[in-house]
């Protein structure tokens, strides 16, 4: 009887596993294999097994510094999303408004509009002739337009705009799962409102914070469009460099090596996260 049941989860999972295998594992293996190949001067790929592409990446500090910048910007995006996302998530979890569901749908509203359109629209708001500069100039608060576009700030803003819903929803789910009696119980034992939050709510919401942070970090580290549309000359990230090598110079082997290094580093961070914080914490936020 037990044996009969043991294959059922696998049978049910098989369509998803097949899709993951063919659309994620196999392409990733292709990229890994390509990273050892060579590029002919005409742009053709030459099968080989050599580490020249990896050696090239670490030959000087250009590519590693780009990698570090990518990680730094991703961490900044996590910090900002956390700061900006916790309060709305807390509000959604605590509110007893009958419009609560509508408010949560509003969080998802940006996903209904293409990211490219959302990013491009910032040009009309933050640009030299954009809305903010127009108003400030009209009010004579500034004499020349403020430069708000094409820098790391605008890239971060684009990232946070894109990633904030992921953070809010993860924290919200975690907060929503906390026993509603715990805070009144803490207060009845003498805690102030702030102490109850600090000692009860905050620790119990950490699985959601962890899940949101990990998700935001991984998505930000692999981002391509925000630096391209909203970034300046010095805001290139790793995904942009992969694009340049694969598309710009048709150097698939080197582009693949860069991808594998980025994948490896993110994998290492996720592994360390699991080792010290535990991936299982993420699933707690969904219970």
């Amino acid at each position: 009887m037990m044996q009969e049941k043991s294959w059922r989860p696998w049978a049910l999972l098989s369509p998803a596993l097949t899709a993951v295998f063919f659309f994620l594992v196999v392409p990733t293996l292709f990229v890994i294999v390509y990273s050892f190949w060579l590029r002919a001067p005409t742009g053709q790929d030459i099968p080989a097994f050599q580490f020249g592409n990896y050696a090239k990446f670490f030959a000087d500090m250009f590519y590693p510094s780009l990698l570090l910048r990518t990680i730094r910007v991703a961490l900044e995006a996590v910090a900002l999303s956390l700061l900006m996302g916790y309060i709305p998530a807390y509000f959604f979890a605590k509110t007893e408004s009958r419009h609560k569901n509508m408010l949560i749908i509003l969080i998802l509203l940006p996903f209904w509009v293409s990211f490219i359109i959302r990013a491009m629209s910032w040009i009309n708001i933050l640009g030299d002739t954009g809305l903010i500069n127009f108003i400030l100039l009209k009010l004579h608060l500034i004499s020349a337009p403020l430069s708000m576009l094409y820098n790391e700030g605008s890239v971060l803003m684009g990232l946070v705009q894109f990633l904030l819903p992921f953070m809010i929803l993860n924290i919200y789910v975690s907060l929503e799962g906390i026993d509603k009696n715990l805070v009144p119980a803490a207060k009845s034992l003498g805690c102030t409102e702030w102490q109850a939050f600090k000692e009860v709510t905050l620790p119990l919401s950490l699985p959601g914070v962890s899940a949101g942070s990990l998700l935001v970090f991984v998505l930000a580290a692999g981002t391509y469009l925000p630096p391209m549309i909203l970034g300046g000359p010095q805001n290139m990230m790793m995904a942009n460099m992969v694009f340049k090598r694969v598309i710009g110079t048709l150097d698939w082997p080197f582009g693949s090596a860069i991808s594998v290094i980025l994948l490896g580093l993110i994998g290492l961070i996720v592994y360390a996260y699991n080792r010290y914080l535990g991936i299982s914490q993420i699933f707690k936020s969904m219970q």
Binding site: P41, F62, S65, P233, M236, M241, T249
Partner: peptide, 19 residues
């Protein structure tokens, strides 16, 4: 120009990124 592609394109990427 085709003979210079890899070398110059990579050099250009570095300059563009401020390196």
């Amino acid at each position: 120009w085709n003979s210079k592609q890899i070398e110059w394109a990579e050099k250009w990427d570095r300059i563009m990124a401020g390196a």
